[in-house]
Write a protein that binds this DNA or RNA. Structure first.
Length: 465
RNA sequence: GUCCCCAUCGUCUAGCUGGCCCAGGACGCCGGCCUCUCACGCCGGUAACGGGGGUUCAAAUCCCCCUGGGGACGCCA
């Protein structure tokens, strides 16, 4: 029987979920979903000083917004201390770990010494054979092998091996009694039955340490897959300075979760020349084989394009609530969903983000009296001559019973034929008079959606300027 | 400094076991078409195999060296 795939995403609540973390989560989530496996969410909050509830909440919210649902968890490492201690005691009892009384300063001195000798900075194993008892200020270290080497097969980077002399007796339990990252991940990943661990390749070099721990604890090794990192535009590790925005900020900026996912998945993964992926496609098409192995840079402009594509391809009903949400912060009146449903198709091909769409929706949801006319634009476009035409047209429109696009076209075509003028000359004056802007969706559709009352009142206002 | 990873257009990438690649797609940028404006769309253009050695009839594709970039060396994760 083939083992069911189990993956996890283990964020540390010491910061926001940014695109790097989100992509790691995405790969794990996709692997689980595509294999009909289990996706576990685990909060790694062993750094009590820096972990906050607020960050935890934000991360959970971001995961939900992106639609990456988890089957198990969220587990909190801070609630599993007994489990870690139990395993640490086991290692101590079997002589695979030991208590160390060296202070942080002393260890730093050892590292400095190694550095001056041109070696890799390491703890020198001073307390290794001392047989010390636990005590205040003491940490527990792994009694790591002094020779030989440690290797593992990586799903994306291939076989990796390091000389054990590069490793040192790293800390498993801190002086404050909390387990360290390496101990806690290994214990949790093993106990929670992880089959695959996909993470950034910044973890590649401490994987051997973890392999050592798996061996010491007698756990079966999972499959590791180290995906290339997402770097900032300056090719440096992503940090607050770059686009390391919180995922939630993309929601505020009007990006669709599906577009964010689509953009992230293409960073380090590809499926031939395909650029756009629907939600279900992501799951059905994802596979480990198509993961790349070199670092990449996140390109916000591509996100814009992908987002615009997704907006264009989204069913109108799905956009209605999203547009509604974006209207409020702009101080625009709330509009009837039915009405939004009518204007959205006009805005879909013109919007990069939902915020952008909301801005363009203003002319539709605003009342005639609240339309803002730019004096310069009006002076330039609504000339005395144009005014005469607008006036004549206004009267004809007033007679219309139906304001359907075809009716509007009929009236205007008729007017053009009678007067012999070109539509081109009339279009901008009409546009400016009913929207106050020099650009808008097509005139007939705009008028049809606005409706007779709004159109006439706006023309009246423009004519009275 | 030591160890590890990586290396195709500005960016994301295709290029699976070498020939179909004087390198394809996408974003961006630049032209053009469409057109009532703005977009969408469509058409076209710009731009890359880091360098040097091999192996081979043939290398972007395999090997080595160099260079470059990144990462890790925490009682952070």
């Amino acid at each position: 029987m083939i083992k069911k795939v189990v993956t996890r995403f283990p964020p540390s609540p010491t910061g926001h979920l940014h695109i790097g973390g989100a992509r790691t989560a995405l790969f794990n989530w996709l692997l689980a979903r595509s294999q009909n496996g289990i996706f576990v969410l685990r909060i790694e909050d062993t750094d009590v000083g820096r972990s906050t509830q607020e960050m935890t909440d934000g991360i959970l919210q971001a995961m939900q917004w992106l639609g990456m649902d988890w089957d198990l968890g969220p587990y909190f490492q801070s609630e599993r201390l007994d489990i870690y201690n139990e395993h640490i005691e086991g290692l101590l009892a079997s002589g695979q770990a030991y208590n160390c009384q060296c202070t942080a300063q002393e260890v730093e001195a050892m590292r400095e010494e190694a550095r001056t000798k041109g070696e890799k900075p390491k703890y020198n194993g001073r307390c290794r054979e001392l047989g010390l008892w636990p005590g205040p200020g003491r940490v527990v270290r792994l009694k790591a092998p002094l020779e030989g080497d440690t290797g593992f097969q990586d799903l994306v980077k291939g076989y990796n091996r390091v000389d054990n002399r590069e490793l040192d007796d790293f800390v498993l339990r801190r002086a404050d009694g909390m387990p360290t990252y390496n101990l806690a991940v290994v214990v949790d990943d093993a106990l929670m039955g992880m089959t695959h661990i996909l993470r950034g390749d910044d973890h590649l070099s401490n994987t051997p340490k973890q392999v050592l721990l798996y061996q010491a604890l007698g756990f079966e090794l999972p499959q590791f897959g180290h995906v290339p990192m997402i770097l900032g535009p300056d090719k440096k590790k992503l940090s607050k300075r770059h686009g390391a925005m919180s995922v939630l900020e993309y929601r505020e900026k009007g990006y669709l979760p599906q577009a964010v996912l689509n953009t992230l998945v293409r960073l380090g993964w590809s499926y031939g020349d395909q650029e756009l992926f629907a939600h279900d496609e992501l799951i059905s098409l994802f596979s480990l084989q198509n993961l790349g192995k070199s670092a990449c840079v996140f390109n916000p402009e591509k996100l814009d394009w992908v987002n615009a594509q997704h907006i264009k391809n989204s069913p109108v009903e799905e956009l209605v609530p999203l547009l509604g949400e974006q209207l409020r912060p702009k101080g625009l009146p709330r509009a009837d969903p039915k009405y939004l449903q009518e204007i959205i198709p006009l805005l879909q091909p013109r919007s990069t983000t939902m915020v952008d769409m909301a801005e363009q929706a203003a002319v539709f949801v605003l009342n005639a009296d609240d339309i803002v006319y730019d004096p310069d634009l009006v002076a330039k476009v609504i000339t005395p001559e144009a005014k005469a035409h607008l006036l004549a047209l206004r009267d004809r429109l007033a007679w219309l019973e139906s304001f359907a696009q075809s009716d509007l076209e009929g009236v205007i075509t008729e007017y053009l034929e009678e007067t012999g003028i070109k539509f081109k000359l009339l279009a901008q004056p009409i546009r400016v008079s009913i929207t106050g802007k020099k650009a808008s969706p097509g005139l007939f559709e705009t008028m049809a959606v606005l409706g007779k009352e709004q159109v006439l009142r706006r023309m009246d206002r423009a004519l009275s300027l």
